[in-house]
Amino acid sequence: MTEHPAPDLRRDLVTASRILFMKNILDGFGHVSARDPEDPETFLISRNMAPGLVSRADIMRLDFDGNDVENSGHRPFLERFIHASIYRHRSDVNAIVHSHTASVLPFSISKGSTLEPVMHMSGFLGARVPVYEVRDHGHLGCDMLVRNSEMGDELARTLGDEAVILMRGHGMTVVAPDVRLAVFRAVYTDVNARVQTAALSMGEYTALTPGEASAADETNSAQNLRTWALWETQVQNGCAD
């Protein structure tokens, strides 16, 4: 069996940021991170900047309290606590994407429709996509941002064992065992939301069963490198560093 070299996480985070910008998952805001396998109580994430401009030199390492453990001098993202708390609560998660993807926002505020898998590429959504509601935790009149560990922990507990969580009036957070699968899931959460919205406009529709969703997720998780290779090539000139 051919052994593949371990991914260069810093390079993957740069590429992931560029891919997610290209795919309109991230714009001037949002972020992607990876647990550091050499120090699993820390994670890598870019400094506070637009994702489409991230370079290798912009990657910093934080602990689960959101502290810059290397004293890089970079200014971290305000919502770094989303990542820190999920890594603390979920040992199976090694990569996280947080975005404000417009297609999913209606499902975060709708009282009549919930996001669910309607296509085989989004089986990872499972039977229930939870929604983090800041008001349920006493955060009245706040700016909706996850500004501290308390709110991060609330988000992580609401996420539970799922792969995706919506944040009411805010966006979504996607988790995965690695960066490349996290990118795949973020992209296809967007695609699923757009397909489901189109189906809703036509009336009743048929979603995946839990069994179909699980089987599809297993198949797609083993093949996501195909999409990564394509998307990486599309942004390759911008990721030369």
Rank of each mutant, 00 (worst) to 15 (best):
N237E: 10
L181Q: 06
V191G: 09
A222I: 02
F81H: 13
A95I: 02
P130W: 02
L200H: 08
R18L: 10
R10M: 14
A156W: 05
D136W: 04
V118P: 03
P177F: 00
L225W: 07
S221G: 14
R185S: 05
V131S: 07
F29L: 13
Y87F: 10
F21Y: 14
C239Q: 08
D217P: 01
T101P: 03
E218F: 09
A176T: 00
S108G: 12
N237K: 07
A240Q: 09
W228M: 04
Y132T: 05
T189E: 11
H137M: 09
Q196N: 09
N192M: 10
N71I: 10
E41K: 08
K23S: 10
R10K: 15
A6E: 12
N237S: 05
L140I: 15
P40F: 00
Y87V: 00
N67V: 04
M172Y: 03
T114L: 06
M1R: 04
H100C: 11
H74R: 12
D153S: 15
L125K: 00
H120K: 03
D136I: 01
N71C: 11
R75W: 05
L166G: 06
G203A: 07
P210C: 13
R194M: 06
A199Y: 02
E154A: 11
H31T: 04
R47T: 14
R180S: 02
L181N: 04
A240P: 00
A222Y: 01
L140Q: 13
R180I: 02
M60K: 04
A199H: 02
V129I: 03
T42E: 05
H120D: 11
P177W: 00
V191H: 07
N48F: 07
P51R: 01
Y87I: 00
T233M: 02
I86R: 02
L159R: 11
L9H: 11
A34M: 04
L115N: 03
R147I: 15
Y205W: 05
N71S: 15
G238S: 08
W228S: 01
R11K: 15
A16T: 04
Q196E: 14
F77M: 04
L200K: 09
A163K: 13
F43L: 09
I109Y: 05
I86Q: 03
R56L: 08
L208W: 08
H120M: 11
A50Y: 01
I59M: 15
